[in-house]
């Protein structure tokens, strides 16, 4: 069993959703994570709020947020256990993040600490 990180990529993080919409997404996200956890495949997850977001550039240049300059922002991630990348992809397909136009979920295998396999 390997661990994979599913990274939520939002096309435009500054877009404001209505409170009702946000609550709906929250519920869906909780159900989605709950479903993975019910299969004992959940490892951990985190949202990445845009408050206090900075981007550090060469020569000590610091800008607010990743917005504007970068088209795509990362909204959060979840780590799962899966037999294969295909299984991890199946998990990703259920992510409510994909309901937002232009959004995507990037699936990455997490390197094992022992570096063997």
């Amino acid at each position: 069993m390997d661990e994979f990180m599913l990274i939520f990529r939002h096309e435009d993080g500054s877009k404001q959703a209505s409170p009702e919409q946000m609550q709906q997404w929250m519920k869906q996200t909780m159900d989605w994570i709950g479903s993975i956890a019910a299969q004992n495949k959940f490892v951990g997850s985190n949202g990445l709020p845009f408050d206090d977001a900075r981007v550090v550039w060469p020569d000590n240049v610091v800008t607010n947020g990743p917005f504007g300059d970068i088209k795509e922002t990362i909204g959060g991630y979840i780590m799962v256990r899966a037999e294969s990348v295909e299984e991890a992809v199946e998990f990703a397909k259920g992510s409510p993040v994909l309901q937002g136009p232009g959004n995507s979920v990037e699936v990455r295998k997490i390197a094992k600490q022992d570096g063997t396999h």
Binding site: K27, D31, G34, A38, N40
Partner: peptide, 28 residues
């Protein structure tokens, strides 16, 4: 349902997974 969603993240057990699914049936 939401409580089971949460519980399973911090302490998975087969019985919690089954109970969560029952709650899912009732709620969804």
């Amino acid at each position: 349902l939401q409580l089971y969603n949460r519980l399973l993240q911090i302490a998975y057990s087969p019985i919690a997974a089954l109970n969560r699914t029952f709650a899912l049936a009732k709620a969804r």
